[in-house]
Structures are given as C-alpha cells and as structure tokens.
C-alpha cells in the first residue's frame, strides 16, 4: 500500500540524513521525498511517499518518531488529506505535435513556461493521479525531460499538526 507520511523535524544540520538513513538502513522504500522549512523557522517539514504492508508502515512511523529530531509524524489517510505535486516537463513539439501538446496542457491546466522551435516546457500542478495522467498522454509525443517535486500533503480542515 502507498502511504504519504508527513514528518515535522527540527530545522537542524543533518536531520535529512537521519531520516533518509533510517529508510535505507532498514530497507524501507522511498518513492519520493520533499523537504522545506515551514512557517515556523525552527521547523522543516518532510513529505515522504512510501510503500509497505500495515506492519511495515507501523514500523516506519514508529522509527521516525524515535529519531530525536523528529517532532511529529502523520501517516495521512487519503480522505483526510490534500496531496499535490508539481512537474516540469519538456516535450517534443514539432509540426504535427505542437497543437496536441497545447491541447493536453489546456486540459490539465498546465502552463507553457518555455518554448523553442522543437519543444515546449510545461508546468503542471495537481494530485499525483492527475499529473501522471497528463504525463501518460504526453509520453507518446516524445518526453525529453521530466522533473517532479514529489507530492506534498496537508490535512483537511482540523486534520494536521494543530487539529
């Protein structure tokens, strides 16, 4: 099962390596990981997407909580959370396909952020499902380069850190 876990950590030297080292040292999966400071300067927030059965996910959250620099861990359930990721994607855009790329961009509300005679670069934001649906449509046209932030997640309403 895929899980999106948010980890609130001390904004300190070496914290990311502790979190990443925990995953590699114990053989847990990381599908994606993002990290950035929060509105509280002393804190950073890591969002990690991982996979595993119930027992593994329980171990992951417990092991994360055990790290001294980890302040809170939330294993978000889909119904209580909003997940978004951003991708920048460079696609082949030559005569026949130029219009098609724009059409797809339009459907997914992606922005064209760079244009050359041979390519378009699009910026798209959305749920991981939406973003990957767009990628799949673009793929046959010739994906030159794809970069993704990986998902970030926030709780709905009262769910989250202070709920």
């Amino acid at each position: 099962m895929r899980h999106t876990i948010a980890v609130l950590v001390e904004n300190e030297f070496g914290v990311l390596s502790r979190v990443v080292g925990l995953f590699s040292g114990r053989g847990f999966n990381i599908d994606s990981l993002t990290v950035a400071p929060t509105n509280d300067e002393s804190l950073s927030r890591i969002t990690v997407v991982t996979r595993g059965d119930e027992q593994i996910i329980e171990q992951i959250t417990k092991q994360l909580n055990k790290l001294i620099d980890v302040i809170k861990v939330i294993d978000f359930e889909a119904e209580n959370a909003i997940e978004r990721e951003m991708v920048l994607v460079k696609v082949n855009a030559e005569e026949q396909s130029r219009a098609e790329v724009l059409r797809i961009a339009d459907i997914f509300r992606a922005k064209v952020i760079d244009v050359t005679p041979k390519s378009y670069t699009l910026e798209a934001t959305g749920t991981p499902a939406k973003v990957s649906a767009m990628i799949e449509l673009l793929r046959p046209l010739g994906l030159k380069e794809l970069v993704s932030t990986g998902p970030v997640v926030i709780g709905r309403g009262a769910k989250g850190w202070k709920g």
């Binding site: 030297f13 070496g14 080292g21 040292g25």
Partner: peptide, 16 residues
C-alpha cells in the same frame, strides 16, 4: 564521525 556513527548511536551532536 557524525555521518559514520549516525546508524549506531541513539543520537549524535557536532558542536559548532
């Protein structure tokens, strides 16, 4: 040594 001992300590500190 902070990197080397990370997986075999409960915690470690570099004093800066």
């Amino acid at each position: 040594i902070i990197g080397i001992t990370r997986p075999c300590t409960k915690h470690n500190f570099l004093v800066k």
